[in-house]
Nucleic acid binder design. Sequence first.
DNA 1: TATAAATTAGAGTAAAATAGTCCTAATTAG
DNA 2: CTAATTAGGACTATTTTACTCTAATTTATA
Lengths: 133, 133
Amino acid sequence: MLLTRASEYALLALDIIRNADKPKGAEQLSIELSIPKSFLAKILQGLAKEGILESKKGAHGGFVLVKKSSEISIASIVIAAEGKTPAVFDCSQYSTTCPNGSIGSCTISPFLVTFQTKIDTFLQKLTLEDIFK
Amino acid sequence: MLLTRASEYALLALDIIRNADKPKGAEQLSIELSIPKSFLAKILQGLAKEGILESKKGAHGGFVLVKKSSEISIASIVIAAEGKTPAVFDCSQYSTTCPNGSIGSCTISPFLVTFQTKIDTFLQKLTLEDIFK
DNA sequence: TATAAATTAGAGTAAAATAGTCCTAATTAG
DNA sequence: CTAATTAGGACTATTTTACTCTAATTTATA
């Protein structure tokens, strides 16, 4: 799987947050979406760190969108949620054990790079607004 | 990750097999590629079952290509190697616990379907010949 | 026909990634 | 002050990935 539940929960939560007029708390969101609160809270924290959401602490706090939906790429959401860019195949991680030696010299490397670029481009061009309209 | 080592090993092995004039054994391939023999053997068995390779048992046996490289899609190789089609996000697996109920009614479903289709199409159009030329 | 070289099949295992939980601290509206 | 809320870190459970091992089967060839 390219995307994990973190991305799924992030996108579902963002759709609710962008349609709300007040800050949405993690607990409220977890109830509306029927997903685990602590896990969702972690994901929302990640989105806040990346500047996709603004978090308001304390009573009546919660999360609000900082930018317009049309200015938030799906790529940035996924990277914030997953903690890394979604990779077709994680060569670098295995570089020391790579059968073909260093990265880039492998016979399938051109294919992998082309594929990865296709995915990156697709996610970078798509915005939060696009996927919900 | 969308693709696992099974697909990587399958593609690397197929590149050697298609350039050989005799059946290539799992052991020989595992040596040339510096990858575990038993694991590679399992993957080659899968490719043989899907009709991508023909396996010859016994002495001087091994694996040979059945079709031309240009007639073998990367999609078919990946499906044979992974045992399933590479999924962007595995909704069906979570259908019983899906926050939004049944598949397709989820707000991110259209995005997921579009994304998955893009990937499927890309892999179906690409052939073994394409990625090594 | 014996034998060595292969694939086949299935069960089992180890490591890594995913999907969480839990607890304590810090912040803030009212 | 206090109740509501985010922040952070450590921890755990589950699932997937990446293998291994053993025994059975097949087959070229001597």
